[in-house]
Computed example of a mutant assay.
Amino acid sequence: MFALGNAVIQYDDYRRQWLAGAVIATMAVWSVFTIQAYSRRRGRRPWVVVADLVVTCALMSMSPLIMSDVQFLLNIPLITTIWACGPAVAAGALGGQVAGAVGGFAIGLSTYLNRGMISVDLVRDVVLLTGAGFVVGMASTTAKRASVRLAQALRTEAATAERERLARSIHDGVLQVLARVRKRGSELGGEAAELAELAGEQEIALRSLVAAAPTESTMDGDADLRPALQLLATPRFQVSTPATQVMLPTATAFELTAVVREALSNVDKHVGPAAKAWVLLEDLGAEVVISVRDDGPGIPEGRLASAEAEGRMGVAKSIRGRVEALRGTLELVTGPGEGTEWEMRVFR
Rank of each mutant, 00 (worst) to 15 (best):
G185P: 05
H171N: 10
A143V: 09
A167E: 07
R41K: 09
G272M: 04
S110V: 06
M117G: 11
L330G: 05
R42H: 10
G314H: 09
V89K: 05
G285N: 01
L154I: 12
G100F: 01
V102M: 14
L281M: 03
V23D: 01
Q97R: 15
G96W: 03
S119M: 04
V174G: 03
R348H: 01
W18N: 11
A251Q: 14
A286Y: 10
P249D: 02
G104W: 05
R15C: 06
R124M: 01
G137M: 03
F134H: 11
V323N: 07
Q10M: 13
A199S: 14
V55M: 06
D283G: 05
L129T: 02
Y112I: 01
G133D: 08
W278E: 15
Y11F: 15
V127M: 13
Q71E: 10
S318A: 13
F105D: 03
L198V: 12
R124I: 00
G190R: 05
Q36F: 11
W278F: 13
G185H: 06
E301I: 09
I319G: 08
G95Y: 01
I204T: 15
A161C: 00
D52L: 04
Q152H: 10
R293S: 14
P297F: 07
Q71N: 01
Q238T: 13
S39K: 02
D121T: 11
V289L: 10
G173Y: 00
V120L: 12
R44F: 04
V289W: 09
